[in-house]
């Protein structure tokens, strides 16, 4: 079931800027910002694989998504 991205929430206070999420993101959605914190620069490229959220050592990323079917029901 295809997932639709609603939001990528990054807790900048917890992010330590290790860059793991940026390096392994298959869609190249993320980049480091001017303060060396993760930033969701291109959310439209996100495939909701959740790997950034699962690989974040700082528990600083939350990918909020909806299943396509759920979206249809609600619309």
């Amino acid at each position: 079931m295809k997932k639709i991205l609603k939001d990528i929430r990054i807790n900048k206070a917890w992010c330590k800027g290790c860059g793991i999420c940026v390096h392994f993101c298959p869609g190249k959605v993320l980049e480091m910002d001017e303060n060396d914190k993760a930033n969701a620069r291109y959310p439209e490229l996100c495939i909701c694989c959740m790997m950034c959220e699962l690989r974040c050592p700082d528990l600083a990323i939350e990918v909020i998504s909806d299943d396509e079917s759920t979206d249809e029901v609600s619309s």
Partner: peptide, 25 residues
């Protein structure tokens, strides 16, 4: 995830990129 952690101790003291955070996750 936040319901399983003691948020008052975050950010945690592990170094940037430490694998232990991923194990906890």
């Amino acid at each position: 995830v936040r319901d399983y952690i003691r948020q008052r101790f975050f950010p945690h003291l592990w170094c940037p990129g430490c694998g232990h955070g991923i194990v906890m996750n």
